[in-house]
């Protein structure tokens, strides 16, 4: 077995490398494409080494926008960021509070409330899109951040996650803090939240990326170009009718669209690990 190990490792590395190349090559291609001018890409034989148009492309994409008088992508990124942040933070707030209520308080119809929340799992945005659109439109929330964020906050995933976590926290901790003079809110703030940091970080990453990648909902409720998100921006750049697609700008936008989720994952991963090491139930 010992002499075989070397070849096994080699094989494992080979498979992993192939996998990485398959995943990473399109990304690499997009990054390369964002460093050339439009004509080089349109030619069809784009070099695989960086070109010299990077600064120009990124500057133009971020602050000016495409030639067909579109909004600057910097604006779209800001919109996407507000939406993703709003969804992630809002969802964490709502689900941590509702899980707290369901687990630690005895009130009439508690389990009914929990099951109603649970059932919403079966109703993703796409299923309830018409009634949701109607309500948002009637409330006058079209083309607003509130309209972008609010309907996507309401869902059960976070509540379930926190509920499961809270159930693993021993009752004695609650009782000890009762005796230590901490009321419900203090227990929540001083004990429950610090213990939930890992869960919160995990949910934040998932929800931020979920919000950032939203396509259908923003497409429906944003009509002004100043409210566009970056995902919609990319789509619009590619499907132009009366002009050539500016692939260099589209690819630059795509690269820019990848940056915030990647940053969130990298930053939160450290918190994950820290949380995993430090927390003890």
């Amino acid at each position: 077995m010992v002499e075989n190990r070397r070849y096994r490792n080699l094989l494992a590395y080979l498979i992993l490398t192939i996998g990485i190349v398959i995943v990473a090559f399109p990304v690499y291609l997009a990054i390369m494409a964002s460093t050339f001018d439009a004509s080089t890409i349109i030619n069809g034989n784009m070099p695989l080494v960086p070109g010299d148009q990077a600064a120009d492309n990124y500057y133009r994409t971020l602050f000016i926008g495409g030639s067909a008088s579109r909004e600057p992508v910097g604006m779209m990124m800001f919109n996407s960021f507000v939406m993703a942040m709003g969804i992630a933070v809002g969802k964490i707030l709502i689900s941590v509070l509702s899980a707290f209520a369901v687990v630690y308080f005895r009130f009439p119809l508690r389990m009914t409330a929990f099951w109603i929340i649970f059932i919403t799992l079966m109703l993703p945005v796409e299923v309830r899109i018409y009634p949701t659109y109607k309500i948002v439109a009637d409330l006058g929330l079209l083309d607003t951040y509130t309209g972008l964020i609010l309907p996507l906050i309401a869902s059960a995933t976070g509540t379930l996650l926190f509920r499961q976590f809270f159930m693993t926290i021993p009752d004695e901790l609650l009782e000890a803090s009762k005796i230590d003079g901490a009321g419900a809110f203090r227990f929540f703030k001083d004990t429950l939240i610090p213990l939930s940091i890992t869960t919160i970080a995990a949910l934040f990453v998932i929800q931020f990326i979920y919000g950032w990648n939203q396509y259908l909902w923003p497409l429906l409720i944003t009509t002004q170009s100043s409210m566009q998100t970056i995902v919609i921006g990319i789509k619009k750049m590619i499907t132009t009718q009366d002009a050539l697609t500016e692939w260099n700008i589209a690819m630059t936008t795509a690269v820019l669209a990848m940056v915030p989720p990647v940053l969130v994952v990298i930053f939160m991963q450290r918190l994950f690990v820290k949380g995993l090491v430090e927390t003890e139930k």
């Binding site: 901790l173 005796i179 001083d190 610090p194």
Partner: peptide, 28 residues
């Protein structure tokens, strides 16, 4: 419980895992 002027020691200690020993004792 907090106003009964009692203190309790639990079977599984029920120390706050995220607080230092000092903070555990100081919390109340």
């Amino acid at each position: 419980p907090a106003d009964r002027d009692i203190a309790m020691v639990f079977q599984n200690y029920a120390l706050y895992p995220h607080m230092s020993v000092y903070d555990n004792m100081a919390y109340g």
